[in-house]
Amino acid sequence: MTPSEKSANSDVDEPLYTVRVVAERVGVPTATLRSWNQRYGVGPPEHSRGQHRLYSETDIAVVRRMYELILEGASPRSAARTAVDSVRPARGDAAALLVAAFDFDVFTAGHLLDRHLRHFGVLDTWDLLIRPAFDAIAERQAQGESCIDVEHALSWTVTRSLQRYPIPAPAESAPIILACTPHETHTLALDALRAALVERGRGALMLGADVPRSALIEAVERKGRPVATMLWSQTQDTADVDTVNDLAARASVSVGGPGWDAVMDQIQAPRLKNLRAAVDYFVPD
């Protein structure tokens, strides 16, 4: 994005207009605008207690499009969804996501995530929005701020948005199994991988958190044909070398997550360093 493009994008996303001004410009009562904002997320996503909601030019464009669709006969809910999808959101606005997360405003956070996913896809949403938000939370924790609750709330919200991606029909290629190692409970990266694979027409079986070694082996054997697996470990304590090597004798195995840093020389599997690398590995060009 060039500096001029960035400046133009900032102008249309800058919150400047009160609900009364927007009502006069669009021809919709203020009470209706407030209802649309609360029920459908149409309007400004950020709101701090004691402050007025301010609309940007982008927000007004969404409101105007929703009003037009309603006049054409659409229901408010359908019109809201179409109007939101028709306007490109700010790309990688992690600051807005953080504000919503620290306010425990999961409605707004989910709204931001869903719009970004629809317009930019899983990979860009992960790299430009989700990861920067979690990095900022981790930095604040390192500085002594207690915000584990915020981290958990945001994790749940992100997972909910990613899990909206449908389960596609089985592909003819080797099935993909995604699982956390025994005692590992961090599934967010695997949820993102599954959603990114869906965007490319590939399904994956998600086994989720804390999968015992015996269950992983049984899942591979139950498929009865070649299987590609991905095992996630967030910490060194859950980097189960024996599980990887046992599974490698039965299927194609790869690993992901920082937990494998210290044991890569002990396992028989490639490490996929990030989400893009994992998608390229499972769905090569």
Rank of each mutant, 00 (worst) to 15 (best):
T2Q: 05
K6G: 15
A8F: 02
D11P: 06
D13I: 05
V21M: 15
E24A: 04
R25S: 02
G27R: 06
V28G: 09
T32K: 02
T32M: 05
L33S: 01
S35E: 14
Q38R: 14
R39M: 01
Y40P: 01
V42C: 04
R49Y: 08
R49K: 11
H52C: 09
Y55V: 07
E57Y: 09
D59W: 02
I70H: 09
A74K: 15
P76H: 02
P76S: 14
S78D: 15
T82Y: 10
G92Q: 03
A96M: 07
F102T: 13
F102L: 14
D103S: 12
F120S: 10
F120D: 11
V122Y: 06
R131T: 13
P132C: 05
A136T: 15
E139D: 14
Q141E: 15
S146T: 15
E151Q: 13
H152P: 07
T159R: 11
R160M: 06
R160T: 13
R164Y: 14
I167F: 10
P170A: 06
E172Y: 13
P175S: 05
P175W: 03
I177L: 14
T187S: 00
L188D: 08
A192F: 01
A195C: 06
R202C: 08
V220T: 04
E221V: 03
K223Y: 09
R225L: 07
R225P: 03
V227E: 01
D237I: 10
D242W: 03
D246W: 04
L247Q: 12
A249W: 07
A251S: 10
V253Y: 07
G257D: 04
W260D: 02
V263D: 04
Q268R: 15
L272N: 08
L275N: 00
R276F: 10
A277T: 13
D280M: 15
F282P: 05
D285Y: 09
